[in-house]
């Protein structure tokens, strides 16, 4: 494992930028191509890249499997919770207009952001947890 110095350094350099790009894709998804699904996959790809170059154990220390597994239902909860919140505010399920009484467009924007956040959390959590499950099987 001494020979892959370049890989290790390059990975360490790239990881923050990949995560930054994932967040950019997430929050710029309203204006350009992107959204929760892509951002979740890119964030998971960062963890997988780290695990491939540095080994599974350091990656598990950085992103514990328990967190990844907790993210899977958490995202669905955020998504469905947004719907329940709009219901509690007196509108239909997932009708984001209710989220902001002054301006329906702002409510829509907020709702879309929340829902995309839910998608991001679920997708990233699922991909990382599935990768850990497959990779941890070999030892």
């Amino acid at each position: 494992m001494k020979l892959d110095l370049i890989l290790r350094v390059a990975t360490k350099l790239l990881c923050p930028f990949i995560l930054l790009f994932a967040l950019y894709v997430q929050f710029h998804g309203d204006y350009g191509p992107g959204g929760g699904f892509q951002a979740g996959v890119i964030a998971a790809a960062m963890v997988i890249l780290y695990a491939i170059t540095y080994g599974l154990e350091p990656a598990k220390r950085a992103v514990p499997p328990a967190i990844a597994q907790a993210m899977i239902p958490l995202g669905v909860l955020i998504f469905a919770g947004t719907g329940v919140a709009t219901m509690l505010l007196g509108d239909n399920f997932l009708a984001y207009n209710a989220l902001d009484h002054h301006s329906p467009v702002h409510g829509q924007h907020l709702g879309i952001l929340l829902v995309e956040l839910g998608v991001l959390v679920t997708v990233a959590g699922t991909m990382v947890a599935v990768f850990y499950a497959f990779a941890g099987r070999g030892r």
């Binding site: 959204g35 699904f37 996959v41 599935v130 497959f134």
Partner: peptide, 19 residues
């Protein structure tokens, strides 16, 4: 867009069954 991500999730399930 959604079908692709669901596709990889089900692919992972199939691969888990293979394992």
């Amino acid at each position: 867009l959604t079908a692709i991500v669901v596709g990889v999730a089900t692919l992972a399930l199939g691969l888990a069954l293979v394992v």
